[in-house]
């Protein structure tokens, strides 16, 4: 039973980031992200990586899919700061970026843990996760520690 006399521990602020929009073909990806796994999709027959996820391999037309952990390492391929309108769910203007992953595919995400003026082209980054509304998580990227 709770004792009203004791002050409750300060609750962590509720995440305000919008949750992922989950489609059947990308369900594995977001379920992985909830468990802090950064997964990629490759062909179960010819091994070709592909993004965005899709049901058929564009090279050999196989429907076999493999969900494999990605290294989570990549480079900032393209980036900008979203000023106006302030994107819904962010307290500070996010750095939005296209990350070129080691595996050769690209992924839109955020660069976090870095000041606006410290982002440089092709900066090495690695995956980390941030919470969203409705108890989900999404992969974001931070600079690789030297």
């Amino acid at each position: 039973m709770s004792t009203p006399e004791q002050p409750a521990a300060p609750a962590a602020p509720k995440p305000t980031r919008i949750p992922p929009i989950v489609t059947l073909d990308a369900k594995f990806f977001w379920e992985g992200a909830d468990k802090e796994l950064f997964l990629g999709q490759k062909c179960g027959d010819c091994g070709e990586f592909r993004f965005p996820p899709r049901p058929m391999c564009p090279k050999c037309f196989s429907l076999k899919r493999e969900e494999v952990p990605l290294s989570g390492k990549g480079k900032v391929h393209s980036w900008a700061i979203a000023r106006h309108p302030p994107p819904f769910g962010f307290k500070e203007a996010p750095i939005i970026a296209v990350i070129e992953l080691e595996e050769g595919t690209r992924f839109v995400s955020n660069v976090v843990g870095v000041a606006y003026d410290e982002v440089v082209q092709d900066m090495p980054v690695e995956v980390t996760f941030e919470p969203t509304m409705n108890n989900h998580k999404v992969p974001v990227f931070r600079p690789v520690k030297k």
Partner: peptide, 28 residues
Amino acid sequence: TGSLLWCVPFGAMTPASWGALQAQRYMH
């Protein structure tokens, strides 16, 4: 526009944000 759902959770919510990411590397 099927890949917009891969943008929205990261604050890329408007055509300007999508367009800017497309143009940045060219401009650089």
